[in-house]
């Protein structure tokens, strides 16, 4: 095994070729999946940063909306780890943009943060996982649950009249990294031309800790109240629509391995 890794470290082009081959092979072990979605961010401390901006400026006609609305997109490769148990593994790369913007007179202000994720999603059907896909219950194996860990790069931004905030002559774009965990449910809704599966999903992602360095003072121009820039227990309540480009439906849903045991 060590020799295997060693040889592929020495020849990275061979490793890439292997990975590419696995992901897009005609065997159907891995299949491309893309999703777009909306997430509602919930964190009271982060809300307070925006509320402080609004409360301190009662004269402004338009208020900055709390940082809640998030647009998301992700791409992953589905691997069927165990067909009869309906256990799938889908590593994903994703991007999310949480933002709020206002215009008051001639002045525009926008703020938020970018999020780049690596997410290792496991997809399973609870009953099928234990007793096999034949025992998936009255709703069949189309519905599923997801869970998995992830890792994110977070980068906040503040823009005034389209120009990025600068601190000490440098653009404000601090980076922080954080782990997260996510769980959800979904349903394979439609199969199109035996090639595409449309899958709505609901999920919640929990970020134990997000650091947005100097965020309060960057948005407000001060942090005289001493608000934190380290936000704990940040939740994203996500609704996604996934399109999966499939090779074999048998790996995905209600084509059981064996009818009626």
């Amino acid at each position: 095994m060590r020799r295997f890794f060693k040889s592929y470290l020495v020849f990275p082009n061979r490793l890439s070729a292997l990975l590419f081959g696995c992901l897009f092979s005609s065997h159907g072990f891995s299949q491309l999946s893309v999703s777009v979605g909306y997430a509602y961010l919930h964190n009271r401390e982060l809300d307070k940063v925006i509320q402080l901006y609004n409360t301190a400026r009662p004269w402004q006609d338009n208020k900055l909306y709390p940082l809640t609305h998030t647009a998301e997109a992700a791409m992953g490769w589905n691997w069927c780890l165990h067909q009869r148990r309906q256990l799938h593994f889908m590593p994903q790369v994703g991007y999310g943009r949480t933002a709020s913007a206002i215009r008051n007179g001639e002045d525009k202000m926008s703020t938020g943060f970018h999020r780049a994720d690596i997410f290792l999603q496991f997809r399973f059907h609870p009953r099928a996982l234990i007793k096999g896909v034949q025992s998936s219950g009255p709703m069949g194996p189309r519905w599923f649950m997801t869970a998995g860990p992830g890792y994110s790069l977070i980068q906040p931004f503040v823009r005034t009249n389209g120009e990025s905030l600068e601190i000490d002559d440098e653009r404000y774009k601090p980076k922080s990294f954080t782990f997260f965990a996510s769980a959800g449910i979904g349903y394979h809704l439609v199969l199109l031309k035996s090639r595409f599966i449309i899958t709505p999903e609901l999920a919640v992602s929990w970020y134990p800790y997000i650091e947005l360095e100097d965020y309060t003072s960057s948005v407000n121009g001060h942090n005289v109240l001493g608000y934190t820039d380290s936000f704990e227990d940040v939740f994203f309540f996500q609704a996604k629509l996934r399109i999966s480009f499939i090779k074999k439906t048998v790996n995905w849903w209600d084509v059981p391995v064996r009818q009626n045991g």
Binding site: Q60, G105, L165, G221, H222
Partner: peptide, 10 residues
């Protein structure tokens, strides 16, 4: 980027 600046602008 201050309350005062925003107030003056407004």
């Amino acid at each position: 980027r201050s309350l005062w600046y925003d107030m003056v602008r407004h």
